[in-house]
């Protein structure tokens, strides 16, 4: 039985294909999901997502959200998902620097907790892009 992976973001379905396995970064560590996995629901944290299909490995950077496994379907609901293989390295580096700077400034000027958390998520997502990028080569 094959596994269907669906990644949904607010503006589109970012990924919907049959895969062999998928490694998802969650709050409790990374979990590798193959077919016939037990049904679970878990928090997804920003990080790199490894997809194995057609004998190849793909890496996506995803933001925070939730993962649901039921039957042969894996649904990931997240605020953003980006295929990093066609992104420029220096662009990512710039984005990381920018996110870090915004975070520092936010901490200095006592933004409220929610906003800092949000900045942190952005910074983590940018890092995830970098990691996913370096792994996909």
């Amino acid at each position: 039985m094959s596994l269907v992976l669906e990644i949904v973001t607010p503006d589109k379905i970012a990924f919907s294909e049959e895969v062999k396995s998928v490694v998802v970064p969650t709050l409790n560590g990374k979990i590798d999901i193959l077919s016939k996995h037990i049904p679970i629901i878990d928090r997804v944290i920003p990080g790199d997502l490894k997809i194995e299909h057609n004998g190849k490995c793909n890496f996506l950077a995803i933001g925070s959200g939730f993962v649901e496994v039921y039957g042969n379907k894996v649904s990931i609901i997240t605020d953003q998902a980006i295929d990093v293989s066609n992104q420029d390295e220096s662009e990512i580096e710039d984005a990381i620097q920018k996110a870090k700077k915004a975070l520092e400034e936010g901490k200095k000027s006592n933004l409220d907790r929610a906003q800092i958390e949000q900045l942190e998520a952005v910074a983590r997502f940018e890092m995830a892009k970098k990691i996913a990028r370096s792994k996909s080569r």
Binding site: L27, P39, I40, I41, D42, R43, Y70, G71
Partner: peptide, 30 residues
């Protein structure tokens, strides 16, 4: 789909529910 015998791997359920609810609100308002 009717879903049963499902295991949920979540430590802090209240916090997760709050997170989900706020996500739902954001999405709805969007």
């Amino acid at each position: 789909a009717s879903k049963d015998n499902r295991e949920i791997l979540i430590e802090n359920k209240d916090a997760v529910l709050a997170e989900l609810a706020s996500l739902y609100l954001k999405q709805e308002i969007f």
